[in-house]
Amino acid sequence: MLPADGSAGACAICAVVVNWNGWRDTLVCLNSLFALGGTSLRVLVCDNASTDESLAELDRYLRTRCGAWSSAPGEPGFAHPQAADGVLSVHLVRLPCNLGYAGALNAGIKWAREQWTPRGFWLLNNDVQAQPGALDAILAAHASVPHAGICGSVLMEWDAPDRVQGVAGIYRRCLGVGWHDKQLPAGNAVVRLALDYPIGASMYVSADYLDRVGPLDPGYFLYCEEMDWAERGRRLGLRPVVALRSRLRHKEGASTGSRGGVRNKSLLSERYGVINRLRITRKFWPHWLPVVWASLVVVILDRLMHGETQRARLVLRLMFAPSQWLGDARCEEAGDMTTEAHSRAGSGP
């Protein structure tokens, strides 16, 4: 069984990192979390049924990074981190199948809440690198706004870390299209409130938000899950926020094979981009559904103009496959899963 944490779990933040065939990026992310210091942090890596060497490589890294390793037959192993930093423990949970980003985050949150009682969760893509002070800044920003909901970070370009990749998500409901605003406000502001949703690569939510709003909707699998989550919170009076001093470098599209903009979008990204713009519109703004559906004709023409006939056929096929996007986008609990958990637990604060 896991080491008893006493009251430590109640005051620690839990970072949940989703890995899928991306262990190299995940190691960079973990190194950046170990380097943060400051607020006590438990780290949970949810492996989304990777088919590469992720589990072996992550296990090897954690054995080396965490130092002394001990285990008993039939029980998870645990070790104390070598460095006296803010990371209390690192845990690796293997999911039985690929649940998508939202489903994997839900599974990680559920697992962590069964072990401890974290006061909040920092939800991260594996292809981010947290910059110094990123966690403390996101916690401070969230605490400074009454009725704060999801709190996001500012994402910086991976190859040009001084250039902003995205500050906040803006959503045009009449077309079902969202984009990332890259403009940082002038002055010394620490939060941004004018947004539709925080960018999903880095999101902080309190335990209270989870209790009131519920988990992410795993039906989206990929894309729109943060917009859905923010909208559900907004309708309960909880405001999305961006912490302007919380910065992370981000390899945009690394996990979906879509780096480099719309012309390099993968078929996986194309598929869920179409399905989910229709799904979320039907769920929250059904009066716009005919317009959003018709706007996909423009997408098809764009793909054809650029010689992307396979992608154009995919969009057309999905337009006339309502079973893909007319179903209720209900949250399904990710629980009752058989997880193979390897735990590296550090000492309490």
Score class of each variant (00 low, 15 high):
235 R>L: 13
217 D>C: 06
216 L>F: 13
153 S>V: 04
254 A>Q: 02
227 M>W: 15
246 S>F: 04
217 D>V: 04
219 G>S: 13
211 D>Y: 10
184 L>S: 10
187 G>R: 14
168 A>Q: 12
185 P>W: 11
171 Y>W: 12
153 S>N: 03
202 S>V: 13
163 R>S: 05
237 G>A: 07
173 R>T: 11
187 G>F: 13
173 R>S: 08
239 R>W: 03
163 R>I: 05
158 W>S: 06
168 A>E: 11
170 I>V: 12
163 R>V: 05
193 L>M: 05
218 P>V: 03
161 P>N: 03
220 Y>K: 05
225 E>D: 14
223 Y>D: 10
184 L>H: 11
192 R>W: 00
226 E>D: 15
248 L>V: 14
168 A>R: 11
188 N>W: 09
162 D>R: 02
245 R>I: 03
160 A>L: 05
213 V>K: 07
162 D>V: 05
248 L>P: 06
179 W>L: 09
157 E>Q: 06
157 E>T: 07
192 R>M: 00
196 D>N: 04
194 A>Y: 05
198 P>L: 03
236 L>D: 11
158 W>H: 10
213 V>P: 08
191 V>N: 00
238 L>F: 04
156 M>R: 04
153 S>Q: 01
231 E>L: 14
229 W>H: 15
222 L>E: 10
181 D>R: 15
208 D>H: 15
175 L>R: 13
187 G>E: 13
243 A>V: 01
246 S>A: 14
253 G>P: 01
179 W>Q: 09
187 G>K: 12
236 L>K: 12
160 A>H: 05
243 A>H: 00
154 V>L: 02
226 E>A: 12
236 L>Q: 15
167 V>Q: 04
172 R>Q: 12
200 G>S: 14
182 K>F: 06
239 R>V: 02
207 A>D: 12
246 S>R: 03
241 V>Y: 01
253 G>Y: 03
228 D>L: 08
217 D>S: 05
216 L>M: 09
219 G>K: 03
190 V>P: 01
214 G>Y: 05
200 G>H: 10
186 A>T: 14
229 W>D: 10
175 L>H: 11
155 L>Q: 02
180 H>R: 14
214 G>A: 09
251 K>S: 11
184 L>W: 12
198 P>I: 01
215 P>G: 07
196 D>H: 03
186 A>D: 12
181 D>S: 15
203 M>W: 10
167 V>N: 03
228 D>Y: 11
255 S>W: 04
167 V>M: 06
210 L>D: 13
246 S>N: 08
243 A>P: 01
197 Y>Q: 08
161 P>V: 02
231 E>Y: 14
228 D>Q: 11
218 P>D: 01
254 A>V: 02
169 G>E: 12
216 L>K: 04
192 R>Y: 00
163 R>A: 06
178 G>S: 13
199 I>L: 06
197 Y>C: 10
203 M>D: 09
155 L>R: 04
223 Y>T: 10
224 C>R: 14
220 Y>D: 02
236 L>F: 10
229 W>F: 13
185 P>R: 10
244 L>Q: 01
186 A>Q: 15
244 L>N: 01
182 K>L: 07
254 A>E: 00
215 P>M: 05
205 V>F: 07
166 G>M: 08
225 E>G: 11
206 S>V: 06
200 G>K: 08
236 L>T: 10
222 L>V: 11
166 G>R: 08
219 G>A: 13
171 Y>N: 09
240 P>E: 02
250 H>I: 06
222 L>D: 09
243 A>D: 00
231 E>R: 15
